[in-house]
Design a protein around this nucleic acid. Structure first.
Lengths: 204, 204
DNA sequence: TGATAGATATATCTATTTGATATATCTTAC
DNA sequence: GTAAGATATATCAAATAGATATATCTATCA
């Protein structure tokens, strides 16, 4: 109860779906959750060990050929802990957005700096938007026809229709966010261009 | 060049406006940049010392009465380093959004869990939206009348009109983002309610 | 056949960052 | 003058990121 780490809950939550190794968990997060969550190995492996010592998960060592494989399963207390967290209060994410920091700190420099930053940012966000759009299309189509897309369900372990629905809704969060950022780019570029004109006229 | 820390650039950027103490910097970030940046003392003080040993800033110890005060100023190499960073590549922020994690991990639980999470989130975001709206109004009014609002300029050290414009634009980023999140709440709540109906009918 | 390039899987280490807390000084109201 | 609370400065343990190390597996082609 003392630890403030969210990693353990991310891990417990994924283990509540199916037993997995650290590598599996990392892959699942990277492939499917990356638009809202990240974990590093450096955090993952110690957390898995801690869950075992706390009785929230169990570790079993399989061996296929020479490669050893440590698969972790959630225990009943682990499931309990996961549900408690889910029902408890949710912290605001801490944000450190390098682009916004740059833009803000460019406010004393010539306007061209700000405009250049905005245009780069817009390009970056457009690319993200396209990536999202592709994923969204595939998923929405799969959900429409009640058809499990092999690739998706394999990598992400999405089995039920409801799970796919939640995944799609999660993705929509990213889609709407990136759309908002693009809209912001447009209005900000306009605002700076307008300001530039004001300055030019004042300079006459 | 080896360090990947962004903290030093945040600090250099603020020092490029005016000399400040660690406490001043922390206050300025907390008051004005919190919608896109955060720094902790634990990072701030070591960073300030490092900037001094690297020749990017200088430290002067003033004393008003008994309280000692360490004021840091940017040097020319420091200004150079800041500008290099500004012109260089910008990393995507890493996101760990506890709410979205919860929502996604609730996909195997009864729909009521997801709906409850969404409704709490909506309330939270509505409050944030109101806070932003207030700040935005004050700032926009100040900019309209070319009138520097005391409070703002004092705490944030916003002196020029251009600086206030950039601050307002930064804030707009937050405003549009929170609006997008609220829109997402609405469509997601609808989607889950629709799904609930589908299930009810299937259960007949 | 066996050498090897690259992918897969597991793990650790250091640097960075957070969040909580410690300590002293200043200000104000009583 | 003194106690409560605000201001200012700083440190430390826990959490996290990012880079890297190491070994195993797979496919391919010389």
């Amino acid at each position: 109860m003392k630890t403030r780490s969210k990693t353990q809950f991310a891990v417990l939550g994924l283990l509540s779906w199916q037993p997995m190794s650290g590598y599996d968990i990392k892959k699942m997060i990277t492939m499917g959750l990356s638009h809202f969550w990240a974990e590093s190995y450096g955090q993952l492996y110690p957390t898995l060990e801690k869950l075992v010592t706390d009785g929230l998960a169990t570790k079993s060592s399989e061996s296929t050929g020479k490669r050893k494989r440590h698969v972790f399963s959630i225990t009943e207390p682990g499931r309990q802990r996961f549900l408690e967290w889910l029902a408890g209060p949710t912290d605001q994410p801490r944000i450190r957005n390098e682009f916004q920091l740059k833009f803000f700190l460019a406010s004393e420099l010539p306007l061209a700096h700000g405009l250049s930053l905005l245009e780069d940012y817009r390009t970056q966000q457009q690319e993200i938007a396209e990536t999202y759009a592709r994923s969204e299309q595939i998923l929405a189509a799969a959900l429409e026809t009640d058809d499990a897309v092999e690739e998706i369900s394999q990598v992400l372990g999405l089995t039920s229709r409801q799970q796919m629905l939640f995944f799609l809704i999660s993705l929509r969060h990213g889609v709407l966010a990136v759309e908002a950022r693009l809209a912001w780019c447009e209005e900000s570029i306009s605002a700076l261009k307008k300001e530039r004109k004001v300055k030019e006229n004042a300079g006459d």
